[in-house]
């Protein structure tokens, strides 16, 4: 299963970007294949509106099933994620990606 993180960098030790729509990077970890990939999302800065749905669409295209983030998506983004069947976990705003993954495994994150 592919798990997506909003992050400020491209590594396991990068901190989680608490923002969803305007997150700098999207990191995807496939826990079955133990594969870790990062995607630059900084282009989104150029969008005045609609960043949330756009980022959600990207997650869908990447095949993510779970999203781990900080504040949680806004209304529009939440709609897309729901339609895309992606589960959302929030409250990882101050963690590194690694810590956030551990917290998710131990059921310490809040389901959105």
């Amino acid at each position: 299963m592919k798990i997506a993180f909003t992050a400020k960098g491209t590594h396991w030790d990068s901190t989680i970007d608490p923002r969803f729509g305007r997150t700098e990077y999207i990191l995807v970890y496939d826990d079955e294949k133990d594969e870790f990939e990062s995607f630059d999302n900084r282009d989104i800065e150029n969008e005045a509106h609609g960043a949330g749905p756009k980022t959600s669409q990207k997650l869908f295209e990447l095949g993510a099933k779970v999203l781990i983030t900080g504040n949680g998506p806004g209304g529009n983004a939440a709609t897309v994620l729901e339609k895309a069947g992606i589960e959302i976990f929030i409250g990882a705003g101050n963690m590194t990606v690694k810590q956030a993954y551990e917290a998710y495994k131990n059921n310490q994150l809040t389901k959105f």
Partner: peptide, 18 residues
Amino acid sequence: NFHAIIQLGPQILVFPEL
């Protein structure tokens, strides 16, 4: 130009506020 329409696999989503 406003990202008010998104294609998600086999469906089209419209965001009225945008």
